[in-house]
Structure formats: C-alpha cells, structure tokens
Amino acid sequence: MNTKQFVLASRPKGTPTLQNFRKEAVELPQIQEDEVALKGLFYSVDPYMRGRMNDAKSYVPPFTIDLPLEGGVVAEVTDSKSSLFKTGDLVVGVLPWREQMTASAKGLQKIDPAVGQASYFLGILGMTGLTAHLGLTLIGQPKAGETVVVSGAAGAVGVVVGQIAKIKGCHVVGIAGSDEKVNLLKEDFGFDEAINYKTTPDMQKAIAKACPKGVDIYFDNVGGDISDAVINNINFHARIPLCGQISLYNNTETPVGPRIQPRLLTRSALMQGFIVSDFAKHFPDALKELTGWVMADQLKFTETIIDGFDQLPSALLGLFKGENTGKMVVKA
C-alpha cells in the first residue's frame, strides 16, 4: 500500500521552518500477526515536539533525519490481524505522521466516541488532560481559597488547569497573548481574572493586582519573563508545577534571567518539573475523573482544528506563534 508521510528533512537552528520537513511517498508493508492497518483521522501537534527536532538527550529520543515525525494520533482500523481490534474500531496511540500506517496492536488503546468526540482523546481525555490534572493536583495540591496563576492559559493544558483549579475552589488567574483569549478565559472557562501579557507594560504589577493575596500555585507553561514576574509574587510555601517553557524552545543561546533561587528559598517554595509519564500509575483514576467532569459539563474544552494532512508542519509551527486556542489538532 502506498501512502504519504512527513519526515524530518533537517534539524532547525532557532525557530523551525517548513524547509525542516519533507513530504514523501512510502510503501507500507503487509500487516503481520498482532498488527493492524490504520487510517489517520486526527493528529496532535504539541510544543514538546520542538525539542525532539534537536539532536539532544531528553526524556524522549530525538526525531531521526529522513524518518517520519510521530505523535498522538486517533486512527480508524482498516484491517486487523489482532484479537484486540476489529475493522472500524477507533484507536489512539503514538504513531508516525502518515496518512495510513501499520502498527502493533499492543501500543494502541480503543476509544469510545460515545464519551466525547474522537479528537478529545488527543486533548482533554488524553495526554493533555492528564498533564493538566496530575501536574496541578499532585504537585500543586490546590486547596479551596488559594490563588492559582496559569501561564499559556489559553493553550491546551492551560484551559484545563484553570478549570480544575476552579472545581477545587481556587481563585484563578490566566495569562494569555490576546484580548480575545483573555475574554475567552473569563467568559467561557470561568477564570476569575486574565492578563494579556503582550499589552501589559509591567507584568509584575499586573499579577500583584490580579492576585491581591499573592500566588499560592503557579502552573508554568511558558517560562521566560512571564515566569520571572509571577515568581516575584509567590507566597510562602507556594508550589510551582513546571510543565513547559515554550517561550524558550527556539532560543539558540541560553538566556540569563533573574536568579530565582533566593525567592524560592525565602518563600520555602517548591518548583518541580514533570513529564506526565512520571505519574503513569495515576492515569486510570485521573481519566475517570476527567471523563466525569466532561460528561457533567463541569469541564469545557476548545480545539483549534486545522483541516488537511498536508497542514501538519504549518500547524506545529503555529504553536510558537500563538495561533491556537486550546488544543491544536490536524484533521486528515
């Protein structure tokens, strides 16, 4: 079977461009025992993929030049030699950027579209939701009445973090990059306050105003100057789940910012980086709770859906320009 795929053509220096990707034809092998043939339906693009474009040691191996990129994919089973799946089943897994593919059945999970639309299993009911839930609850440990600040608040993880914090009884402040996103956070997702960092001349003062009792939990998705401003407002015994640093991913040099250790020390604060797989044993309980909140309409979600498999590289690059609200997904 002949299909199309996107491979990593070259490693980027600084911000990636379309020239770092190459679309090509590939012939797929016949499926073997315990394998399935799949047709891709929805493809996830995520900020962590930028790190995998570098030839650097990390928590996941880098992408290989001239081989397909990969990520979360919802796909339909078109043929099966596995007892686990039949033709027509919908599955989710980490799969290559191909229109059609073959895969081992063992690495796939069947999804129930009755619970939520299929793309949700790449977002609120997938790794995005788990990242938000477990980072906030296990590291942040929110308590009713506390103040939670979320950077990248209109992104896939941020909108979920803020809503879970509200469910837990917290005062929630989001930081985003446009007035439209600020209004969305307050009107659609229930944030108490939101700040447009692009039009705010003094972020430290703006955060102090939005958080009159100080900051108890800072869920950090972006790093950089925004995080410096938030950390200058933290309370004693504050907790900082360190989820992402998207403002720094394309830097070619390591920036020197304020030294945050004195602030952490004098506030007896905790900052902990995490990868969602660190908490794998908690996945079943967290997914059950997320599903319950979604079905009860306590937890809302938004997606930026880009039509067309050919748009995968452009969609990934769009993350670094703030072109998404909520989860960025490509629909084949």
Rank of each mutant, 00 (worst) to 15 (best):
M1N: 04
N2C: 01
T3E: 04
K4W: 05
F6Q: 01
F6A: 01
R11N: 10
P12E: 09
K13S: 10
T15Q: 11
P16I: 06
Q19K: 14
A25N: 14
Q30R: 09
E33K: 14
E33R: 12
D34V: 05
E35Y: 14
V36M: 12
L41D: 05
F42Y: 15
V45N: 03
D46N: 08
D46M: 04
M53D: 03
M53H: 09
N54F: 07
A56V: 11
K57V: 09
S58L: 08
S58R: 14
V60N: 02
P61Y: 05
P62M: 10
D66L: 06
V73I: 12
V73F: 03
V74L: 10
F85Q: 07
K86S: 11
L90N: 08
G93C: 13
L95Q: 13
M101C: 10
I111K: 07
Q117A: 09
Y120M: 01
G123K: 04
T128C: 08
T131H: 04
A132V: 05
G135W: 01
G135F: 01
L138A: 04
A144G: 15
G145S: 07
T147C: 03
V149F: 04
A156W: 07
V159R: 12
G162S: 09
K166T: 02
G174C: 01
D179C: 04
L185H: 12
K186H: 01
D188S: 15
F191I: 04
E193D: 15
N196K: 11
N196C: 11
P201I: 00
A206K: 13
A210S: 14
P212K: 07
K213F: 03
K213N: 13
Y218N: 12
F219M: 07
N221I: 01
D225P: 09
D228I: 06
A229C: 02
N233I: 02
I234H: 09
N235T: 03
F236T: 14
A238E: 08
C243Q: 08
C243N: 02
Q245A: 15
Q245T: 10
S247I: 04
L248S: 11
N251L: 14
T252N: 13
P255A: 00
V256Y: 06
L264I: 06
T266F: 15
T266K: 11
R267P: 06
S268T: 07
A269W: 03
Q272H: 14
V276T: 07
D278R: 13
L287S: 08
K288Q: 14
L290S: 06
T291G: 15
D297I: 01
L299R: 07
E303Y: 12
D307V: 00
D307M: 12
F309G: 07
A315E: 02
F320H: 10
K321D: 11
E323S: 10
N324D: 05
N324M: 04
K327V: 05
V329H: 04
V330C: 07
